[in-house]
Simulated scan of single mutants.
Amino acid sequence: MMEGEEKAAPQKAATEGLYAALSREDEAAAREDAAIIKTNLRSAAESVITVGQALVRQKVNLGHGRFLGWIDAEFGMTERSSQRFMKIAEVYSGNTTPVSHLGVKALYELAADSTPQEVRDRVEELFVDGKVVTPAKIRELKAEAKAAREEAERLRLKPPGVITVAIEDISLEDVFRRDVGDIAALAASIEKLGMLQWICIDPDHRLQAGYRRLLAAKHLGWTHIQAKVVPRGFTIQEAENETRKDLTPSELVALDRAIEQRIFVPAAP
């Protein structure tokens, strides 16, 4: 017996054992869909959707436990792979045109629960324009959509007295700071924790306080920022920088310990 035949024999026995437990009607339906899936398993978008539709039918027909045994015995398919096929069928069964040009990996990415509808609509627009859409492009579109949602939420939560202003409209004529320090580190902190303190501008959009925070926002690619409108006056810059008091070394140690306990000490059951 050849090596391939040795590997196929146990799989065939498992398949026949599974079918033996079914009624003739269910066995016939399962074998028919198995043939459909095998024919289309490695084909393009429409075939992938056909595979997904057949899997959906047999999951209902066989029940979850038998279904898992069936896809393993017939195709060596995992539950996760079957879920991907079925998800593609769920999303695109009624209209394959927008995805007829996509490969299997791109289909997986597009049909995933994490993909918002606006990304799917954008892929359809790209298809109409004759553009090639890869899995990497879909991930890029998803990242852009996520960033847009986060930005909209950030702007929605602005407190009273704070306005949203285009960064390019902010004048720096009143800025005296020259040593801005590590802007990348500040940007990373803002990206993680959000803008904890608003910048201040006067009614004519001249920056009065928060120059480093503004540079960090630019570093992150923001186009707009929330700002508190204050009267023009250099005393704000002076107060922000001269009256501020850094933590003492002992206070920094205590803060580090508190952070370590917060992160590493397990919660009580």
Rank of each mutant, 00 (worst) to 15 (best):
M2Y: 09
E6W: 08
A9E: 06
A9L: 10
P10Y: 08
K12M: 09
A13N: 06
A14C: 05
T15D: 12
L18K: 01
L18I: 02
A20S: 14
E25D: 09
E25R: 15
A29N: 06
A30N: 10
R31W: 02
A35F: 04
A35H: 02
I37K: 00
T39D: 00
L41I: 08
R42W: 05
A44K: 13
S47Y: 05
V48T: 07
I49Q: 00
V51I: 11
V51P: 07
Q53L: 15
V56R: 07
V60S: 15
N61K: 14
R66I: 01
R66P: 01
R66C: 03
R66H: 08
F67P: 01
F67L: 00
G69E: 09
I71F: 04
D72C: 11
E74L: 00
G76K: 03
S82N: 00
F85Y: 14
M86R: 14
K87E: 14
E90V: 05
S93V: 13
T96H: 05
P98G: 04
V99R: 01
V99I: 12
K105P: 12
E109V: 10
A112N: 13
D113T: 13
Q117G: 10
Q117D: 12
E118W: 09
E118V: 02
E124D: 11
F127G: 02
F127R: 07
D129K: 13
G130N: 13
T134M: 11
P135V: 12
R139Q: 14
E140I: 06
E140F: 12
L141G: 06
K142G: 06
A143S: 12
E144N: 13
A147F: 02
V162M: 07
I163L: 15
A166R: 15
V175P: 04
R178E: 01
A184E: 11
L186T: 06
I190K: 04
I190H: 02
L193H: 13
I199V: 05
I199M: 03
L207R: 07
R212D: 02
R212W: 01
R213P: 00
L215S: 00
A216M: 08
A217T: 04
A217N: 08
H224Q: 15
Q226T: 14
A227N: 09
P231Y: 07
R232G: 03
F234T: 06
I236M: 11
Q237D: 10
E238Q: 12
A239F: 09
A239M: 11
E240M: 15
T243F: 07
T243Y: 09
P249Q: 00
P249L: 02
V253K: 12
R257A: 01
E260H: 04
I263R: 04
I263E: 06
F264Q: 02
P266R: 06
A267N: 09
A268T: 15
